[in-house]
Computed example of a mutant assay.
Amino acid sequence: MSFGGPNNPYQPPYQPPPTNPYQPPPPNPGPYSPPPPPPNTGPYVPPQPYPYPNPYPPYVPQPRPYVPQGGLLGGLRGAEWPPLRDLLRAGRQRMHGCVWLFLLLPCTWFVVPFLMAGYVFARSARVRAHRLFPPRAHRLYHDPQVTRLQKARALSAAAMTLALLIAYGKPEDFGEVQQQYLMRLVVTPPLLLLSAPVVIAVLYRWAPPHARPHMGQRMRAAGKAALWYVGAVTAIPLITGIFALSDDVPWLAAVLMVPLYWLLFFLGFATGPAVRSGFNSAGVHAALPALLTGVLVWEFAIISLVAGGRPPGPPLVSVLAFVGGPASVCAVAWWEVHRLQTRHGVRLRG
Score class of each variant (00 low, 15 high):
Ser2Gly: 02
Gly5Gln: 03
Pro6Thr: 03
Asn7Thr: 07
Asn7Phe: 08
Pro9Leu: 01
Pro12Gly: 03
Pro13Asp: 14
Gln15His: 05
Pro16Thr: 02
Pro18Asp: 09
Thr19Gln: 12
Pro25Thr: 08
Pro26Gly: 04
Pro27Asn: 05
Asn28Arg: 13
Pro31Gly: 03
Pro35Thr: 02
Pro43Asp: 10
Pro46Trp: 01
Pro46Cys: 04
Gln48Val: 11
Gln48Asn: 11
Tyr50Glu: 09
Pro55Leu: 07
Pro58Lys: 00
Tyr66Pro: 06
Gly74Asn: 11
Leu76Met: 10
Gly78Ala: 02
Pro82His: 06
Asp86Met: 08
Leu87Phe: 13
Ala90Asp: 03
Gly91Ile: 01
Phe102Val: 10
Leu104Trp: 08
Leu105Arg: 12
Trp109Thr: 06
Val111Ala: 15
Val112Asn: 11
Gly118Val: 01
Arg123Glu: 05
Arg123Ala: 09
Arg131Pro: 00
Pro135Tyr: 06
Arg136Ile: 03
His138Trp: 13
Gln145Lys: 07
Thr147Asp: 07
Thr147Ile: 10
Leu149Phe: 14
Arg153Thr: 03
Ser156Leu: 12
Ala158Pro: 08
Ala159His: 12
Leu164Gly: 14
Leu165Tyr: 05
Ile166Pro: 11
Ile166Thr: 13
Ile166Cys: 14
Ala167Leu: 11
Gly169Pro: 10
Lys170His: 15
Gln178Lys: 11
Val187Glu: 02
Thr188Gly: 06
Pro189Lys: 12
Ser195Lys: 02
Ser195Tyr: 01
Val198Phe: 02
Ile200Glu: 14
Ala201His: 01
Leu203Cys: 13
Ala211Thr: 07
Pro213Asp: 03
His214Ala: 15
Met215Pro: 00
Arg218Pro: 02
Ala222Ser: 14
Ala222Gln: 13
Leu227Asn: 00
Gly231Ala: 13
Ile236Ala: 13
Ile239Trp: 12
Gly241Ile: 07
Gly241Pro: 00
Ile242Cys: 14
Ile242Pro: 10
Ile242Asn: 12
Ala244Gln: 05
Leu245Gly: 05
Ser246Leu: 08
Pro250Arg: 14
Ala253Ser: 15
Tyr261His: 09
Trp262His: 12
Phe269Glu: 15
Phe269Asn: 08
Asn280Val: 13
Ser281Leu: 03
His285Trp: 11
Leu288Ala: 08
Pro289Arg: 11
Leu292Val: 04
Ser304Ala: 08
Pro311Met: 07
Pro312Asp: 12
Leu316Lys: 00
Val317Pro: 11
Val319Asp: 02
Leu320Trp: 07
Phe322Asn: 00
Ser328Asp: 11
Val329Ser: 05
Trp335Phe: 08
Leu340Met: 09
Leu340Lys: 11
Thr342Gly: 06
Gly345Ala: 14
Val346Ile: 10
Leu348Gln: 00
